[in-house]
Design a protein around this nucleic acid. Structure first.
Ligand code: MN
Ligand code: MN
Ligand code: ZN
Ligand code: ZN
Lengths: 146, 146
DNA sequence: TTCTAAATGATAATAATTATTATTTACTAA
DNA sequence: TTAGTAAATAATAATTATTATCATTTAGAA
C-alpha cells in the first residue's frame, strides 16, 4: 500500500519516519491537482488537527530537497507541488488555475534532439520544459482548485 | 530617441504621459536583465527621489495590461519584467539568477508545428514557451543581478 | 485658465513563506 | 527496554513581495 512505499522512500533518503511526513507525502501523492502548501494543509488538518502549517511547508521543502517530489512554479507566483518526479510538462489553465500534466514522448524526443544540437557556451543545461498556457472553453465543467 | 517612442507607445494606448511612466518604461527598456520591480525602483530613485515603489509596481502592471511589456515568472516566485514583447524563450540560470533571452526560429517552428498537430479538447492554447534551466560554468564572469 | 478623472505618494494591509525557539519525538545504543 | 540525543515539530514572530487605501497632485480636455 501507499504507506509502505512512503516509509520506504523516506528511509531510503535517511529521513526520519514521522507522522507528519507520511501524512503530507500521502496527501500530495493522492492529488493530481498540483496543490499549494496551504491546500495540502487544509486537506489534512481535519484528520490531523495538531499539524502546523509551518511543518507542511518544511516537510514539502525537505521532500523536494531529497527529490521525492517536485516544485512547480506558477505564473501567479505561488508555489505548487507535484508528486510526480518523472520528466513531464505542464499545461497551466489560466481561467481555472488548474495545472494539468502533459506528457508526450514525441515532444520529449523533439526537444531533446533540438537541444542536443545546440551549444551554449559557459552554460550547463539542467532542465527544459515546455510551458503551455491555455484557457478552458467551458470552465463550469472543470475542477476549480481555488 | 527613446523618449519619443515611449510617449508614442503610451499615447497609442490612451495612457496619460506621466514622468513616472516614462522613467519606469525607459529603465526597463535599457535593461536586458529582466529586472524585478524593486530593482527598477532602485535604479531610478537616484534621479527620481520622489517616486514611490507602489507607483513602480502599478506602472509596470499598467504597462503589462496594455501589452507594452511582459511579465516573466521565475522559479523563485518573484515576478520579473521584460521590455521585449515579441515571442521568445528564456533561459533561467539558477546559480546567478540571470534570465537570458533565447530566440531561435528553428525552435519556434518546431514547437508551432508540433502543437498545431495536437488537439486539446475544451482547451484553447494561448501561449507556449520552452523554459530552459541551466547553470553558468564560471559564474565569476557573469553579470549577477541580485 | 479651469476642471476633473486619473495618477501618484505615503503608508497600511495582505499573502506567501521563512525564521525562531521551546517542546516533543524518532531513532540509537547501552 | 530504557534512557540519551539529535532532529523534528508547533506556535508564533518576522520577512518578503505585492496590493489596497486614500489624501493629494497632475495631465490633458474644455
Ligand atoms: Mn512536473
Ligand atoms: Mn508573495
Ligand atoms: Zn505534474
Ligand atoms: Zn526576455
Amino acid at each position: 500500500m501507499v504507506l509502505e512505499e512512503v516509509t520506504k522512500a523516506l528511509s531510503a533518503k535517511g529521513l526520519k519516519i514521522t507522522h507528519q511526513r507520511i501524512v503530507v507525502f500521502k496527501a500530495l501523492l493522492s492529488s493530481p491537482l498540483h496543490p499549494t502548501a496551504e491546500q495540502i494543509y487544509d486537506g489534512i488538518k481535519k484528520d490531523n488537527p495538531a499539524i502546523s502549517v509551518a511543518t507542511v511547508y518544511k516537510t514539502l521543502e525537505t521532500l523536494v530537497e531529497n527529490q521525492l517530489i517536485n516544485k512547480v512554479p506558477t505564473p501567479e507566483g505561488t508555489m505548487r507541488y507535484d508528486a510526480r518526479i518523472d520528466n513531464h510538462n505542464h499545461i497551466y489553465i489560466s481561467n481555472t488555475n488548474e495545472i494539468m500534466d502533459y506528457e508526450d514522448e514525441e515532444l520529449k524526443g523533439i526537444l531533446a534532439q533540438y537541444l542536443s544540437k545546440k551549444k551554449f557556451q559557459n552554460l550547463h543545461i539542467t532542465d527544459f520544459k515546455l510551458q503551455i498556457k491555455g484557457e478552458k472553453i467551458d470552465p463550469g465543467k472543470g475542477i476549480n482548485i481555488i
